[in-house]
Amino acid sequence: MAFRGAVITFPGSNCDRDMAVALEKVSGEPALRVWHADADLPDRLDMIAIPGGFSYGDYLRCGAIASRSPVMRAVVRAAERGVPVLGVCNGFQVLTESGLLPGALMRNAQLNFTCREARLTVENGQSLFTAGFESGSVVSFPIAHHDGNYFADAETLDQIEGDGRVAFRYLDEVNGSQRRIAGVLNAGGNVLGMMPHPERAIEPELGGTDGRVLFESAIGALVGA
């Protein structure tokens, strides 16, 4: 059965096309495009992606307004049914604001916009999204964010660490994130939020292919490849 992936677009999204291209290049199927004001999602989705950008201009808190968009109610319901959801950069912020992931993304500790390659360790190589990596391996993804400083209280941090829900960790200090956390899974393992951009690392011409492994892991598992 052909893969059916959807990419959500909010006013201010600027990585939605990159995400759609990544899904199509890996799956061979065009990604469905969904507007933030749509109250319903397309039928039979294998995966939902919430891309990076500056939804609603990052007013209030990053991702706060987007998390109240009509489509996010449908995304939450889909995630609760087990549909995989990937949120990247602003998408990670939307997922925390919508309650699908714990914690919050705050202003970078250096109070500046950070745009560069970042090396990460794969903390959990057994999730839907990371099964193509070996746990403990080092990968490289681009980052581009102003509010990527992951924060949660100590009890929450201990819980997600103990449950193996830290997917990626910055190898070096990047933005002040608690315990250098770069990506977090939900308790069911079907929702991943991460600040680095795997969709920008799917071809050698883009500087690397580590991101392609993430999409191949998820899409391969979902379509039985």
Results as ranks from 00 to 15, higher is better:
Phe3Cys: 10
Phe3Ile: 07
Arg4Cys: 07
Arg4Tyr: 03
Gly5Asn: 12
Gly5Thr: 06
Val7Glu: 14
Phe10Ile: 06
Asp18Tyr: 01
Ala20Met: 11
Ala20Ile: 07
Ser27Gly: 10
Gly28Ser: 04
Val34Asn: 12
His36Asn: 14
Ala37Asn: 14
Ala37Trp: 10
Asp38Val: 07
Leu41Gly: 10
Leu41Asp: 11
Pro42Asn: 11
Pro42Lys: 10
Arg44Gly: 12
Leu45Tyr: 04
Leu45Thr: 10
Met47Cys: 09
Ala49Arg: 05
Gly52His: 03
Gly53Trp: 02
Phe54Ile: 11
Phe54Leu: 09
Ser55Trp: 06
Ser55Lys: 07
Tyr56Cys: 14
Gly57Met: 08
Asp58Phe: 06
Asp58Gly: 05
Asp58Tyr: 04
Tyr59Gln: 15
Tyr59Thr: 15
Arg61Thr: 01
Arg61Val: 02
Arg61Asp: 02
Cys62Gln: 13
Cys62Met: 14
Cys62Ser: 15
Gly63Trp: 05
Gly63Ala: 13
Gly63Gln: 10
Arg68Lys: 14
Arg68Leu: 13
Pro70Asn: 11
Pro70Trp: 06
Val71Pro: 09
Met72Ser: 12
Met72Arg: 13
Arg73Cys: 10
Ala74Gly: 12
Ala79Asn: 09
Glu80Tyr: 07
Glu80Asp: 15
Val83Trp: 02
Pro84Leu: 09
Gly87Ala: 05
Val88Glu: 06
Phe92Cys: 09
Phe92Trp: 04
Gln93Arg: 09
Val94Met: 11
Gly99Trp: 03
Gly99Ile: 01
Leu100Thr: 08
Leu101Gln: 11
Pro102Met: 05
Leu105Thr: 02
Met106Gly: 13
Met106Trp: 12
Arg107Thr: 15
Ala109Arg: 14
Ala109Phe: 06
Gln110Ala: 15
Phe113Pro: 01
Arg116Ser: 11
Ala118Cys: 10
Ala118Lys: 00
Arg119His: 09
Arg119Leu: 10
Thr121Asp: 13
Glu123Gln: 12
Asn124Tyr: 00
Asn124Lys: 01
Gly125Trp: 03
Gln126His: 15
Phe129Val: 07
Gly132Ser: 09
Gly132Trp: 00
Gly132Pro: 03
Glu134Lys: 13
Ser135Thr: 15
Ser135Arg: 13
Ser135Gln: 14
Ser135Met: 08
Val139Asp: 08
Val139Trp: 06
Phe141Ile: 07
Phe141Asp: 07
Ala144Asp: 11
Asp147Gly: 12
Tyr150Trp: 12
Asp153Thr: 07
Thr156Tyr: 01
Leu157His: 02
Gln159Ala: 15
Ile160Leu: 15
Gly162Asn: 10
Gly162Lys: 08
Asp163Thr: 08
Asp163Cys: 09
Gly164Ile: 01
Gly164Cys: 05
Gly164Leu: 03
Gly164Gln: 04
Asp172Pro: 04
Gly176Ser: 08
Ser177Met: 05
Ser177Cys: 07
Gln178Val: 12
Arg179Asp: 13
Ile181Gly: 03
Ile181Trp: 01
Leu185Gly: 03
Leu185Glu: 05
Ala187Asp: 14
Asn190Tyr: 00
Val191Ile: 06
Val191Gly: 04
Leu192Val: 00
Met195Ser: 02
Met195Val: 01
Met195Glu: 00
Pro196Ser: 08
His197Gln: 02
Glu199Tyr: 00
Glu199Pro: 00
Ile202Ala: 02
Ile202His: 03
Glu203Asn: 09
Leu206Trp: 11
Gly207Pro: 03
Gly207Asp: 07
Gly208Phe: 01
Gly208Leu: 03
Asp210Met: 05
Gly211Asn: 09
Phe215Pro: 05
Glu216Gln: 14
Ala218Val: 10
Ile219Pro: 00
Val223Lys: 11
Val223Gly: 02
